[in-house]
């Protein structure tokens, strides 16, 4: 993970039409920890949500053949069960719940050593044409970096 660059997913472990499992390792040091919190570094809850959203986003991009971008537009319920500290190895899973017209819905969760860390239900994504060609290229490059076929 490179928290300050919003690169949350390190490696895709498995992916199929309806689900993805990915790995993310929290860095030992990050500028984020300088503020969150001094003397007590924790991954911010919003970045755990972002991590789950990115896993679901990669699942949707793969389904879409990287023809469109998935933008997070809401979620129904978020539970943050415990703190996540530097150096932790996280398993991130996301599952497609519904595929609508121009939007998709997914559930996601993060565990570490089989211990539940957080879950989010019914993340909604708006599926839109890439607003800029460089974004499409960047997403393909990011997907290749984490082992997701494009």
């Amino acid at each position: 993970m490179q928290l300050e660059y919003f690169r949350m997913i390190d490696r895709v472990v498995s992916v199929d039409a309806g689900a993805i499992t990915a790995e993310a390792v929290v860095p030992e040091a990050s500028p984020v920890f300088e503020g969150h919190f001094p003397g007590h570094p924790l991954v911010p809850g919003v970045l755990l949500l972002e991590t789950m959203a990115q896993a679901a986003g990669y699942l949707l991009l793969a389904r879409l053949g990287f023809a469109r971008m998935a933008f997070l537009i809401g979620s129904k319920e978020l539970k943050l069960r415990r703190f996540v500290r530097p150096g932790e190895r996280l398993s991130v899973t996301a599952r497609l719940v519904h595929e609508g017209s121009g939007y998709s819905v997914a559930d996601a969760a993060i565990t570490s050593a089989d211990q539940r860390i957080c879950e989010v239900r019914e993340m909604k994504f708006s599926l839109q044409d890439f607003p800029a060609p460089e974004l499409a290229g960047t997403m393909r490059a990011q997907a290749a970096r984490i082992g997701l076929g494009t």
Binding site: H98, E99, G100, S101, G102, K124
Partner: peptide, 20 residues
């Protein structure tokens, strides 16, 4: 409206073609 469409999709077992 997207939340409403999602609920309608689920309630009626359909896919409302909002984009079209």
């Amino acid at each position: 409206f997207l939340d409403i469409v999602f609920a309608i999709d689920k309630e009626f077992g359909i896919k409302v073609p909002v984009e079209t």
